[in-house]
Simulated assay, not measured.
Amino acid sequence: MKVPADTLVPLHERLSFAAGAAISCGTGTAWGAFERMGITGRDVVAVFGQGPVGLSATLLAKAQGAEVIALDIDESRRSKAKEFGADHVINPLEGTVAERIRDLTGGRGASMALETAGAASAGIDALNCVRPWGTVCLVGIGAEVSLSVASMLRRQLKIMTSWTMSIQAQHACANFIVERNLNVDALFTSEWKLDQAELAYETFNRQSGGKGVFTF
């Protein structure tokens, strides 16, 4: 694809082409969300969904010193989240999510929640699991989330969305990953050639496991 040179971010020599693709997509989405949320090492972050965006969020939040609670209904994705540094993993199908997160946080709840699953139930759980003055960011596409303003009002929540990022932020994300020596390539669980596209998309559509990549 031919594009203007000033729209590109140089690929660091320590990054693979696959890592660069992740940074410009799912990993970058997680980075941009955390930039908007203002994450710090003092935060307890609940990450809903441990697909490519959620796993990237788990990896980036731990690298910034936060405590991470990773949630996913898929066992393999929860296991991957532990490998990526999650302090706790939760299956949302087992018990009440907000109560379990409060149990893990001394009754307070998470200070931040990032919803990446694109499921209405995950969005509601994200809103319910944060403590007063907490921050919730919704990036998952495909869900419709209804909420009672009255039930959220007294908790003084900050609720936001986030969509992709600027070239400058993408560059900052890449630099952070290189400086911290983060293994973004570990996101990929499947590698395909272009003539395997049909099989690849059938596999992707199962929405389990990690992230696939086409290589040339």
Rank of each mutant, 00 (worst) to 15 (best):
Q196G: 15
S208K: 08
E191L: 12
E198Y: 11
F176K: 03
I177L: 07
E179A: 13
K193Y: 10
Q207A: 15
D195Y: 06
G212Y: 04
R180V: 03
T189A: 06
A200K: 03
Q196R: 11
L194R: 11
F176H: 06
A186F: 02
N175G: 12
E191V: 15
F188D: 01
A169H: 06
H171E: 11
C173H: 02
A197R: 05
A197E: 10
L199T: 13
Q207P: 08
A200E: 05
E202M: 15
Q170D: 11
A174K: 04
V178D: 07
L194P: 11
C173S: 06
L182Q: 02
L187I: 06
Q168M: 15
F204T: 09
Q170N: 12
R180Y: 03
W192A: 12
E191T: 15
I177S: 05
A172D: 13
E202Q: 15
F188S: 04
K211D: 03
L182S: 05
D185W: 00
R206L: 07
W192Q: 10
E179Q: 09
G209I: 07
K193L: 10
F176E: 04
Q207L: 10
T189E: 03
V178N: 07
T203R: 14
N181M: 09
Y201G: 09
A186E: 05
R206M: 09
L182V: 00
T203E: 14
D195W: 03
D195G: 04
T189W: 00
N205F: 04
L187Y: 00
A197F: 06
F188M: 07
N175T: 11
R206Q: 13
L199Q: 14
E202V: 14
N181D: 14
L194I: 15
N175I: 04
D195H: 06
I177K: 01
I177C: 03
D185F: 00
S190A: 15
A169C: 08
E198P: 08
F204A: 14
N205P: 01
I167A: 13
L182D: 02
G212A: 12
V178W: 02
V178Y: 05
L194C: 12
F188E: 03
V178M: 08
T203W: 13
A172M: 08
A172E: 13
A200L: 09
H171D: 11
E198D: 14
G212N: 06
E179V: 04
I177E: 01
W192K: 06
Q170F: 05
N183M: 04
E198A: 15
A174E: 07
N205T: 09
A200N: 11
S208R: 08
W192M: 05
E191W: 06
N181R: 09
I167R: 14
V178A: 11
G209R: 05
G210L: 07
E191R: 12
D185T: 06
I177N: 02
G210S: 10
I167N: 11
N175L: 08
